[in-house]
Design a protein around this nucleic acid. Structure first.
Lengths: 208, 208
DNA sequence: CGTTGTGAAGGTCTTCACAGCC
DNA sequence: GGCTGTGAAGACCTTCACAACG
């Protein structure tokens, strides 16, 4: 099935959801203008984006904060309790393992993996690091839907291939490399190293 | 001065630069087709993007890998040795402090800050954590150009305001909040918590 | 001959402006 | 009256297709 919600809109929906949570909850309602201000976008953008969810607003009044939050969670699939696995327990993998935000959004961390035998069996937060040898088995047993890749660049493609082979269709990639996957697999790249050069480009521009 | 390079292109240039580094260096030349394959984009896109740098290619041959790398570094401002400061030494801030990639791209980590008195003075990698009280002074002394914000969401806006007051015009924000800044300040947001919901949305779509 | 550089076409995304509705 | 929902306009971005050229 083809999504009828534009990609650019999908990328903003989680931002709206978080902004709603930040609003004082006793405030039952919220206008597109208010939401736009917090989310840092145009108010017409907010209205158009939200209109793809059906029509959750009331003219002359605004959007009901709780209703809209629920609709956003359903639309984004956050009510389904998807499980994630983190592969690569270096500095970043460890930081993510301790990240408390997963639960708030309905995600469960189901497993941590590392290739280093010295790390396997050690505790990280409330979890224990497992061996890459058991990747396939554990991913299937625990019904992992999303792989978070935090291995070094030169191992990332190999890890991604193994994840895809076990049936995973969603990857969040922190390794500084563009993963090559078949087009039934979704990859989001979070790439620190490309962000700083964008800022320095803009810095230069403002001076010249 | 207004940039003549489109924003979408600027965001891809660092990716190209890294891909060139990954190419076997003895390979003196590289076609738009090859680069496009590694970077995961269309080859016409590559040619159009690179044409904004002048015309660094040779028809019938391709692009000289070293020349193009140098041109990209200059265009992105990576030859200017900008300094960064990391504010907020939690799990993520610590992971970034140990990140080796900064130097490769010409960045220098000039200071680490935290508001917690217990952390001030402790060593993280080769650095020592400094007090937020000294933020203004140290940022000016060490000529910091970019602030990397890794504090909790509820402190992020306050920290950003202080950075801007000291004259910083570029912020890389890891806090899950949209920072409100005047429009002479550039902010790039790296937001883990919005990435997972985008993946689950796509997961759902492929099933329905 | 092979590959770049680029006008033109075709999409997608954003913003405006106002009709529609509570 | 006030705010949403949305057609239409406009800006931006991507892709095609081929002329230009080493």
């Amino acid at each position: 099935m083809k999504s009828s919600i534009p990609a650019a809109t999908v990328a903003r929906l989680p931002v709206y959801l978080r902004c709603l949570g930040d609003l004082f909850v006793s405030q039952g309602t919220c206008s597109s203008e208010e939401l736009a201000a917090i989310a840092g976008v145009n108010s017409a953008q907010v209205r158009k984006d939200l209109s793809f969810l059906g029509s959750p607003g009331v003219r002359g009044v605004g959007y009901n904060v709780l209703d809209l939050s629920r609709e956003l969670r359903v639309a984004l699939g956050l009510t389904k309790g998807y499980s994630v696995a983190i592969i690569g327990i270096g500095n970043l993998g460890r930081a993510l393992s301790n990240y408390k935000g997963f639960g708030d959004w309905g995600f469960e961390v189901a497993a941590l993996f590392d290739a280093d035998p010295d790390k396997v069996g050690t505790a990280v937060g409330e979890f224990s690091v497992e061996s890459m040898d058991d990747l396939e088995q554990i991913v299937k047993e625990r019904n992992v839907s999303i792989g978070i890749v935090t291995v070094p660049a030169d191992a990332a493609q190999y890890v991604a291939d193994r994840l895809v082979e076990t049936g995973i269709r969603s990857i969040l990639n922190f390794a500084p490399i563009v993963l090559q996957v078949s087009d039934n697999v979704s990859v989001r790249r979070v790439d620190l190293s490309t962000e700083l050069p964008i800022l320095t480009f803009l810095l230069q521009q403002s001076v010249e």
